[in-house]
Design a protein around this nucleic acid. Sequence first.
DNA 1: CTCATTTTGGAGTGGCAACTCCATTCCGCG
DNA 2: CGCGGAATGGAGTTGCCACTCCAAAATGAG
Lengths: 211, 211
Amino acid sequence: MPSTTIAEHAAPTRRLTAKGEATRARIVEAASALVFLHGVTRTGVEDVQREAGVSASQLYHYFGDKQTLMRAVIAHQTVEVLAAQGPELDALDSFEALDRWRDGLVALQRARHCAGGCPIGSIAAEIAEDDPDARADLVDSFEQWEAPLRSGLATMRDRGALRKDADTDRLALALLAALQGGLVLTQLRRTTLPLETAIDASLELIRSYRA
Amino acid sequence: MPSTTIAEHAAPTRRLTAKGEATRARIVEAASALVFLHGVTRTGVEDVQREAGVSASQLYHYFGDKQTLMRAVIAHQTVEVLAAQGPELDALDSFEALDRWRDGLVALQRARHCAGGCPIGSIAAEIAEDDPDARADLVDSFEQWEAPLRSGLATMRDRGALRKDADTDRLALALLAALQGGLVLTQLRRTTLPLETAIDASLELIRSYRA
DNA sequence: CTCATTTTGGAGTGGCAACTCCATTCCGCG
DNA sequence: CGCGGAATGGAGTTGCCACTCCAAAATGAG
């Protein structure tokens, strides 16, 4: 396409200086932290400005509106959530790895004193109905989460650790759902018990397919 | 939120006329419907007034502030959710009953075209961190939900349908968590598949304890 | 019927939050 | 070193929204 004209709002690719990139990142991080603590609608743009140490014009220079900022938050939190699960997430191909992964998740929630729930799941529950674009982003985020679970279990089955008749795709989806539900209840009750119980039940079902 | 005046609004007069009771109920029902559709913060008090056909003074006559109204919404939706699961919820003491209950939940979500998630769970994810009183209410709501699951499974075990070593309390909690997580993913993906998969996995685990 | 109490009407009001605008400074590049 | 575009400052501006207030109408107990 011709590059003689500047595609203002249409083009997502804007020339950003290293400094600009840093500012943009600071805004997204501040917004992510606030959204994690208080949710989307209770997080004001002004709050983000203060937390990130930027002016209103800066924020609106990098993000057209709050909705756009929130989609950036979703993208950022998706990366964070996957990273928080460590390299193990990409190699969940043994019962030992699954147990370590489970322990890591529980320890993380305990360190947070069970506050906050899932950074992505909370956003999903809040704006899934009102922002179709954000919903699409979130579907994609969860797909990125579910994929390594699927492939890990598939590897176990192919390797012979799980029986041939184990529907690993189904088990992976059930595991992710249990995790999400466990997080909601853990956030409410301020105990990791629901999270542990939900994940352990899913893992027990997986173990029942042990070859 | 504007002023933290010592609440004289705190105790709404218990002396309510039949007419007053009806008005109050209309407000709660309208608020519940709107919250289910758009969430707590996106539901304006004015929206509730319009939907319920009442004036501002009426609404604030029965509810001191929005927060109080939202707690009434939680109470109302708790009753509705339990009622929506039919009388079966109180007699989940056989595999057949569990299957019927599961089918009912899936059918309900399908009828809603997978929109809306869990009326209680959505509120939980949205305001659990910012309203301690509401959080306490929600803990209680989920307890009312979990209790019949627990007692149904306990009955099955006592009756000999489940093995003695089945930890029915744990299975009940895992089932509720799977249900919640399944609803979140079903709401996002607009397919009942996650909900079905999550519940079925839990039921399969329960069946594995068949005596 | 009387009168206290409850219920209702509806126009404010004050504050906050999202977003705008324009001037100024900074930075990379030739 | 000069220029164009990027980055920044910060004071508006607009509109929404939770909440208030005063007065009137309906209701019910005695």
